[in-house]
């Protein structure tokens, strides 16, 4: 793990927001490490992309199933930030949130069935 990553992670987890950024810049200037700033920015961008990739998302096979999917997923304690319609799921829905997956789609069921038969 590099120093830029450590600084970026510290900024993200800090509750002080802008004040933390100012303190970090002062600290880097005092240490003569201002060259690190672009790398810290790159790390922050990556961290943001990663957190977006694990944001709560509900994917539904069709518009018609959306309401039922929201009810079913809420019953499992899942509240999505975004709802996406993806017909490739064939039927049902799947929910992803910070490394958790509930896949109740027809595609998953058919793929599992295919794997069980062929392997």
């Amino acid at each position: 793990m590099n120093l830029a990553h450590v600084y970026a992670s510290a900024l993200v987890s800090s509750p002080e927001g802008d004040k933390a950024v100012a303190s970090l810049v002062t600290h880097l200037q005092a240490r003569g490490r201002m060259k690190l700033l672009p790398r810290i920015l790159r790390e922050l961008t990556e961290l943001r992309e990663r957190s977006q990739a694990v944001a709560p998302t509900l994917t539904v096979a069709s518009e018609a199933e959306k309401a039922q999917a929201l009810t079913d997923s809420a019953a499992l304690g899942f509240t999505p930030d975004t709802v996406v319609i993806d017909p490739t799921l064939i039927k049902g829905w799947r929910a992803t949130k910070k490394g958790q997956l509930i896949d109740r789609s027809g595609k998953r069921a058919l793929t599992d069935l295919y794997r069980n038969i062929t392997t």
Binding site: L76, G92, T96, Q100, L101, D103, S105
Partner: peptide, 18 residues
């Protein structure tokens, strides 16, 4: 049968290849 099919998959822990 297809129309009535309801998958009951539970929660799984997943990650993404970085």
């Amino acid at each position: 049968e297809i129309a009535n099919f309801t998958p009951t998959q539970g929660t799984e822990e997943t990650g993404l290849v970085r």
